[in-house]
């Protein structure tokens, strides 16, 4: 919030406002900025996903709305979803049903507070930044369970139970993989983690040593499962559970689930880019003139593209296989990695 607070200081007579307002305004302003950024990124990602899937599937995808390659298609879709009737089925638990999409979105949204997009473009630099992300992003599970339970639909319930089991299980290898990085940095602050990787791509944790490279892969797989992307998209397995936990949702509330899904995708890609790919730092010293946020977004986009690529080419796992991969493959590997990385760090 520091940078935004400083900008606000430049407004004339800002100091004259009451203390409470002075404290509140930066919070509100930064929330709006993050939300706008996120909404824009999601609109772009949905369009990108549709184009990527279309080209993988030998189609063209959206081509009409907006002229150039249908760039305005998602804007039109978002408007349509927002203008639709807000249907709340009769037998649902109304309070939980209405609240759930926002809580799911909140989990993804709150985590962006500590993401450093550039050397000075971040809302705040918590000294427990990465821990905060791990904690806050698991908040969305509560929303998913609320949605599944409140919908009063067996498919929704199945979807939410799967989501709960899956997200909580995969958090462990993801968190352990993150710890390998923390060992090297000695700090949980996201900004510190990026600063430790400055000076070309060879300093990125991805290329530091084989343990960290494997930790990146473990984190990437686990994070795919955390955000319910293929091949781990069981909670919303269309062919089995119709639409999983958001079967009963439509209109704006469905749009929020959708927003949350893509925001989560963006979040895990950003975290992976920050932790392993050097965040805003340029890969080569000649490229240092490029602004930090641009570098950051390019890195995140590459990871997002890989996620989309996997989604449109891989089938889905079964529940037991999903759990097997987590507890018997990823978890032992991640523990071995933390030992190996720790040993390398001492050397």
């Amino acid at each position: 919030m520091e940078s935004i607070a400083q900008l606000l200081q430049k407004i004339p007579k800002y100091d004259g406002l009451p203390e409470m307002l002075q404290a509140l305004i930066p919070i509100i302003v930064s929330s709006i900025v993050i939300f706008a950024l996120l909404a824009l990124a999601v609109l772009f990602m949905v369009w990108l996903e549709r184009k990527v899937s279309a080209h993988i599937q030998d189609r063209l995808g959206p081509m009409v709305v907006g002229g150039w390659h249908g760039w305005a298609q998602t804007i039109a879709d978002a408007l349509k979803l927002l203008l639709k009737e807000d249907i709340v089925p009769e037998s649902v638990d109304r309070v939980l049903f209405k609240m759930a999409p926002f809580i799911v979105f909140l989990g993804a949204f709150a985590a962006f507070v500590v993401l450093p997009f550039g050397a000075s473009s971040f809302v705040t630099d918590l000294n427990i930044g990465i821990l905060y992300i791990v904690a806050v992003s698991s908040l969305s599970v509560i929303g998913i369970i609320m949605a599944g339970w409140a919908s009063n639909n067996k498919y929704s319930l199945y979807g939410s139970m799967r989501a709960a089991a899956q997200v909580i299980s995969y958090e462990i290898p993801a968190a352990v993989a993150i710890m390998t990085v923390v060992i090297y940095v000695g700090s949980l602050s996201m900004v510190e983690i990026v600063r430790a990787q400055e000076g070309g791509f060879l300093n990125w944790f991805l290329f530091r040593n084989p343990f960290l490279f494997l930790a990146f892969i473990v984190y990437f797989i686990a994070s795919l499962a955390e955000v319910n992307r293929t091949p781990f998209d069981l909670p919303e397995a269309e062919s089995e559970l119709v639409a999983g936990y958001h079967t009963e949702y439509s209109g704006m509330r469905f749009a929020f689930f959708f927003l949350a899904e893509y925001a989560n995708m963006f979040l895990v890609s950003s975290v992976a880019a920050t932790l392993f790919l050097g965040g805003w730092t340029a890969p080569f010293s000649i490229l240092q003139f490029i602004p930090g946020p641009v570098v950051f977004f390019v890195k995140a986009l590459v990871l997002i593209f890989i996620q989309m690529w996997m989604r449109w080419s891989l089938p889905r796992l079964r529940v037991d296989q999903l759990m097997y991969i987590n507890w018997k493959v990823l978890l032992p590997i991640s523990f071995a990695l933390i030992l190996g990385a720790g040993w390398m760090a001492i050397l």
Binding site: Q57, D58, T230, A237, W312, S313, L314, R316
Partner: peptide, 9 residues
């Protein structure tokens, strides 16, 4: 099985 691309191919 969850793979959409073969369908369109």
């Amino acid at each position: 099985i969850g793979s959409f691309t073969p369908f369109l191919w």
